[in-house]
Design a protein around this nucleic acid. Structure first.
Lengths: 133, 133
DNA sequence: GTAGCGTTACTACGTCATGTAGTAGGGCAG
DNA sequence: CTGCCCTACTACATGACGTAGTAACGCTAC
């Protein structure tokens, strides 16, 4: 089952992924149980344990998280990094535009980008080139 | 009514926007009627006239198209360009990542980008800078 | 003037994604 | 053996989107 085309996340899904992405380092031993994730979310909002379970189940089916048994319980880890998902979203955003308009789209995007974002982009481009050299 | 945060489009919505974006130049005189859009879509797929109307109505409410009366009928024009929408999608994609991870995300994205895309990006960056100089 | 035809306005229904959560049942600790 | 914890399954609400029917109204051609 490969990563679905639609990697868009709802708010709760994202909140849960944020907990998983915060695991550092993301080794199997550090995988989080539903309870841990629920406890973490509970500090900020009122949410049922089973709701967290359901969403984690859906995230698993979408291929965004992996899980392993730990006794009766499951322990969850993110399947990919936050950066990879963002990269995917960027990719998807470009999938529908005509190549002839792509440059104009990028220029529009850059117009709306912050100086920091542009710096990051330049740095990433530079790194890409240095690796290819 | 400002542009909604979620500018994501469904397949039919996109097909209709494609018709409108194809209007060149997009002057009020060139605005398309529902019938014209329906005729165009009908060449490729079986679709009811009222379906096209409904979707155009929704696109109007979303602020993605504008319309003006022409007798009893409405004539539609895109509110913004395809490039602007794409730029918006790119923008949204970056809205949820930590700034500390943004550069890594961009690098991932560039890894998956085609040479053409990277060229367009560099060109856009160069243009941005030349304008600021 | 009247019968169509074209056009809109309104309503409606199916599906899918997502948020939300209850209940049943099984296994483990005490 | 009894309660607690965890899962599996089911369920329902909402919103977005695809899809389209029906009512109603005005213009046009006879």
């Amino acid at each position: 089952m490969k990563m679905s085309r639609r990697a868009r996340l709802g708010d709760l899904e994202r909140a849960i992924m944020d907990r998983l992405w915060a695991i550092d380092p993301p080794t199997p031993e550090a995988a989080m149980s539903v309870r841990e994730i629920h406890d973490s979310l509970s500090q900020e909002r009122d949410i049922a344990y089973t709701t967290v379970m359901t969403v984690l189940d859906r995230l698993t089916k979408k291929g965004l998280v992996t899980r392993e048994r730990d006794g009766r319980a499951w322990r969850y880890l993110p399947q990919s990094t936050s950066e990879e998902l963002t990269a995917h979203l960027l990719r998807d955003s470009l999938d529908h535009i005509d190549t002839s308009d792509r440059r104009a789209a990028m220029l529009h995007f850059l117009d709306s980008a912050s100086a920091d974002e542009i710096d990051d982009l330049k740095a990433a481009l530079a790194e890409l080139e240095s690796r290819q050299a």
